[in-house]
Design a protein around this nucleic acid. Structure first.
Lengths: 135, 135
DNA sequence: CATACTGTAATAAAATATGTTACAAATTTA
DNA sequence: TAAATTTGTAACATATTTTATTACAGTATG
């Protein structure tokens, strides 16, 4: 299972980019993706914490982009919503008396770290504007 | 949340590679990773279906590698346990009347597809033997 | 024939993700 | 200034997925 944070966040940002002059309400945004408005507001809270969007409370309030979409890369969005990708770790404490158990997580970590570098390199080349222009 | 299938499978294979002449029991393997033996047997069933291991029922039975560990790549293991990586999709049917909602999953799919190519390229360069030699 | 395994199904428990309700606080507009 | 609308957030409920457990038939070994 993968949390939908990245997908929700990029959807929000794409919409905001399509209406750069409007404050969009969480209800409007939620209507485009068919999720609960509270979920949208939670991701917006995260975006606000990273100064990517600004929002206005009260009537006719909502959220708009606070950065230039050509300067925001998918890598940054990835880092705000996923810490890292990977293929999972040994969940329970593996047996420390077994040479494999003792080092498995460390070796997986090294493997995934390299994966993240590749993925980050890819995502860094795509701006929100690029992504948004596909629609 | 990420299913631990890859981590469990590579752990199993590393152990099998360390004891190439023995049939290891699911209980022994489970002991190294501290999970339930039934989980191990399920992943072994998957490996058997791909002809990566062979197993022997009955007393003193167990599982051993059926391929040369220098010829099995992590890419193959990845493909047996994860179909693909990605950062999630819009889960509910997005609004088809919204230009963004209509195409979001398609565009995410394209993005993730490229991610998978990068990751596969990396994993293809690492054999089970390489991975195993780190322990 | 007793023992120790695999194979597999069925079910239970735990973890995580998503949805819902509720409401205080803020801001607009009439 | 009062009504309406929207954010922000907490608390809780539901759904989904993952992991664990139990059970037992079938199979090989000695």
């Amino acid at each position: 299972m993968i949390s939908g944070k990245f997908a929700i966040t990029i959807h929000i940002l794409t919409l905001l980019n399509k209406f750069p002059n409007d404050y969009l309400s969480s209800e409007f945004i939620a209507g485009s993706m068919n999720v609960n408005p509270v979920l949208v507001r939670k991701e917006i809270a995260n975006l606000k914490a990273h100064h990517i969007v600004e929002s206005k409370e009260g009537k006719n309030g909502g959220t708009k982009l606070a950065v230039n979409s050509s300067e925001l890369t998918l890598k940054e969005i990835f880092e705000m919503t996923f810490e890292t990708i990977g293929l999972g770790f040994a969940k329970n404490q593996p047996n420390p008396d077994c040479p494999v158990g003792k080092k498995i997580n460390q070796n997986l970590e090294a493997l995934y770290s390299e994966m993240n570098e590749k993925v980050s390199a890819q995502l860094q080349n795509i701006s929100l504007e690029d992504f948004s222009n596909q629609f």
